[in-house]
Amino acid sequence: MYSEKVMDHFSNPRNVGEIEDANAVGEVGNPQCGDIMKIYMKINEETNIIEDVKFKTFGCGAAIATSSMATELVKGKSVDEAMQMTNKAVVEALDGLPPVKLHCSVLAEEAVQSAIFNYYENRGMTPPEGLKCSGCCGSCHHHHHEEEE
């Protein structure tokens, strides 16, 4: 049911862990729903480049694989570029996800946005318009911006 890419990122996830001196941390999801993603970023405050990114995820195979892929997609990118990363891009990079698992890719997108939101907050700046998530999502059945394939 999972593509080879998903299985690869699930069984050998990239960028697992924490960053001690992270200047951007985002956490989305909740234990009730069965998935939580926490993303740590080390962003260069002069260049706005995401120099390092790590994640920890509680969730199914797809949740771990989408976290892994999302961190790969934003690593080395500028904050502006990372903000543009959609759940669809994560799904495509993983060669697709089963329809019932699409919400995991939404969570990955939200985790990245949530970390960036935190980055601006930490610096006392107003986060840019259009950032979708600031660590929200109280309900398992409520997933915004979900894109059906």
Binding site: P13, E18, K56, T57, F58
Partner: peptide, 8 residues
């Protein structure tokens, strides 16, 4: 568990 934020 080593990759779970809940465990952390």
């Amino acid at each position: 568990r080593s990759m779970s934020p809940l465990y952390e």
